[in-house]
């Protein structure tokens, strides 16, 4: 094992801390969807920037790993760049922007468009792990509700959505039921990504400030909650990508001038770049939109 920077232990965290996190991860994998408390450490970044995800990533990294970090689907935004640099410096691992080449992907609020494969690990940054939090503020009570599988209240929220908006308007952090048992917050991914939670990869969720870790083992059953007469629907903007023409990917809307001009582009930058390199074109390809 070669260390890139001798001032840091491999992967920044000390070995005892990694051991503690790994124990929590194993327990989380054994009970899919259950929130395991862990002794979250102070990290050299503010809460809300992915302290939970970074600790999980640090505990999972090996020197042979190839790391990819995305923020809202993009490889090149502040959060993604700084976390990627952090692990380049403290672990010296190889990094990539290509989903297929990565063995470990840390993500903030998206699942890559390219289907994940066996052997890959997807680490989520989670701000608020408790799906019932905004309905029931007491932690003692929400824990009891999970223990007793008392999830009627979750449906009250969906009912309110329909009553006020005519449809289930929860567009992100859409609650799911895991293996018919625990209701879980899939972190604030768009509900478009919910079907992708049933995956061949290991999915780990880390909430640093809230000190919780939970997980989805490969191929585990994940069902989005809904009503019989208002079934779950994975929604996205009703457009094609303006750069690569993809009609099936999740899109970001970008305002391009102050005259109402806008463009829609894939939120997954690696996926979009890959399609453009393969010759796909969209409505605004080749034009200077800046």
């Amino acid at each position: 094992m070669t260390l890139h920077d001798q001032n840091y232990n491999f992967g920044y965290l000390d070995e005892q801390t990694k051991r503690m996190v790994r124990r929590a991860l194993l327990k989380a994998l054994a009970i899919p969807g259950y929130q395991v408390p862990f002794a979250s450490r102070e990290m050299p970044m503010p809460y809300g920037w992915g302290t939970g995800g970074v600790q999980v990533t640090a505990a999972c990294l090996t020197p042979e790993d190839t790391l990819k970090v995305i923020d809202q689907g993009a490889d090149d935004t502040t959060n993604a760049v700084s976390i990627r640099k952090f692990f380049q410096r403290t672990a010296g691992v190889a990094v990539t922007e290509h989903t297929e080449q990565a063995s470990l992907i840390q993500t903030r609020h998206r699942i890559p468009e390219t289907p994940l494969t066996e052997g890959q690990i997807l680490v989520y940054q989670v701000p608020i792990p408790e799906p019932l939090r905004f309905l029931e503020p007491r932690e003692t009570e929400t824990r009891r509700m999970h223990a007793l599988e008392d999830y009627g209240l979750m449906y009250v929220k969906l009912y309110e959505d329909i009553a006020h908006n005519g449809e289930i308007s929860t567009a992100y952090a859409y609650p799911v039921k895991v293996e018919g048992r625990y209701v879980m917050d899939p972190s604030p991914i768009p509900r478009f990504d919910n079907p992708k939670l049933e995956s061949a990869a290991i999915q780990l969720f880390g909430a640093g400030r809230e000190q919780r870790i939970y997980a989805l083992p490969p191929y585990c059953q994940v069902v989005s909650l809904d009503f019989e007469d208002h079934p779950f629907e994975a929604s996205k903007a009703d457009h094609d990508c303006d750069l690569c023409g993809c009609a099936t990917s999740y899109l970001d809307e970008i305002i391009v001038d102050d005259a109402g001009g806008r463009m829609f582009i894939c939120s997954d930058t690696d996926f979009c770049a890959g399609r453009q390199a393969a010759g796909h074109i969209g409505r605004l390809s080749g034009k200077d939109t800046a």
Partner: peptide
């Protein structure tokens, strides 16, 4: 939450999953 949701909560807690009927 709304009055309707207040009335519906017990129904949903015992397993009602049809929005139209709850309403």
């Amino acid at each position: 939450v709304s009055a309707g949701a207040n009335v519906g909560e017990r129904l949903m807690a015992v397993g009602a999953r049809h929005y139209g009927q709850i309403r």
